[in-house]
């Protein structure tokens, strides 16, 4: 009788465990949504900073289709990013030409051929390569690649699309290797066994079965590399020559969107048209990289079954 009464008096009570549990839940929730808060915050910030320009001076046709980026002109400043887009696109494109064979080859070797210690060592090395700061890569472009290209191809300047493309390709290759390797590892072993049992050679197994089965993940890896290329700033700033130019060959100097922001933002008056135009470039970059990463993510998850 008294036990039942004791229980009745406890039914409505919450004890310490319950509060701790609730607190932990809230803390973890805050951690979880912080990424969303930050990304929304950044987008709001750069949009706000670029808003004045977008509302007043922004001329859609000039911004996207004029190759003239002359923000500091006294008489007639123009804000055309066509040459900058061409710079970013050419460097990224060449970087992918360099990175795709390297990373795909490395991923196939690590996932399909290497065993034991070799495999572990290679994986660690690839991750280490991904951790090299971009300014170091830029330094290599500036002090090693530059004279090398001048000597090798007998051109007046070595800070070119070629230089930045190779540097950026080597920078993007490790992360692409990592993701491509994950994609290959995700192909079930029973597929390989089935093909082997049919008398497929190892290359046939890889080309006819493993690569087709992993194609979504591999495409995702490439797209992440492209995203990396668009977003990279320091190495590109140091290796491209930073000259506003629509390139006609790989031996032309160019200037990238990101490098323009990095180089000029410190020189502008806060709130000026130039300042706001740089933020508009930022918005543009943000949207592009967001779209690239989003599609990479969707493809890796196989939402788009091809």
């Amino acid at each position: 009788m008294s036990e039942a009464r004791a229980q009745a008096s406890r039914v409505g009570q919450r004890n310490r465990d319950w509060y701790i549990d609730k607190a932990v839940e809230i803390i973890v929730f805050i951690g979880g949504i912080s990424a969303i808060i930050f990304i929304v915050g950044i987008f709001v910030f750069i949009t706000k900073e670029g808003l004045g320009f977008l509302a007043d001076t922004f001329d859609f046709k000039e911004f996207f289709f004029s190759p003239n980026w002359r923000p500091t002109s006294e008489a007639n400043p123009t804000y055309g990013i066509l040459a900058l887009m061409a710079g970013t696109a050419s460097v990224t494109g060449l970087a992918m030409l360099v990175a795709i064979p390297f990373s795909l080859g490395a991923a196939i070797y690590v996932a399909e051929f290497a065993t034991g210690k070799t495999r572990e060592a290679l994986k660690v090395l690839v991750e280490l390569l991904a951790a090299i700061p971009s300014v170091v890569w830029g330094f290599i472009g500036l002090s090693i690649m530059n004279p090398l290209i001048i000597d090798l191809f007998n051109v007046p300047i070595g800070l070119t699309v070629l230089n930045a493309g190779i540097i950026l390709g080597l920078m993007a290759a490790p992360i692409m290797t990592s993701i491509a390797e994950d994609a290959l590892k995700a192909v079930p072993d029973r597929y390989r066994e089935a093909a082997e049992a049919m008398g497929a050679t190892r290359w046939q197994v890889i080309f006819k079965v493993v690569l087709p089965a992993a194609k979504n993940g591999l495409l995702g890896a490439v797209l992440l590399g492209v995203g990396r290329g668009f977003g990279e700033t320091m190495a590109v700033l140091m290796a491209t020559g930073h000259a506003i130019n629509i390139p006609t060959s790989v031996f032309d100097s160019v200037r990238a969107l990101t490098a323009t922001i990095a180089a000029e933002l410190g020189e502008t008056a806060n709130g000026s048209d130039h300042y706001q135009a740089l933020f508009t470039i930022g918005i543009f970059l943000f949207i592009i990289t967001f779209l690239i990463n989003l599609s990479a993510d969707l493809i890796v998850r196989g939402v788009r079954k091809g």
Binding site: M198, G199, K208, A213
Partner: peptide, 29 residues
């Protein structure tokens, strides 16, 4: 040797390709 010996595994392994390509794989190899 392996081409002369066919194997059927415990769990069905439909390779991620079309029905036609699944069956045509061995001759193509």
């Amino acid at each position: 040797l392996r081409r002369r010996i066919g194997v059927v595994f415990p769990l069905p392994v439909g390779l991620p390709m079309t029905v036609y390509d699944n069956v045509a794989l061995a001759p193509r190899l």
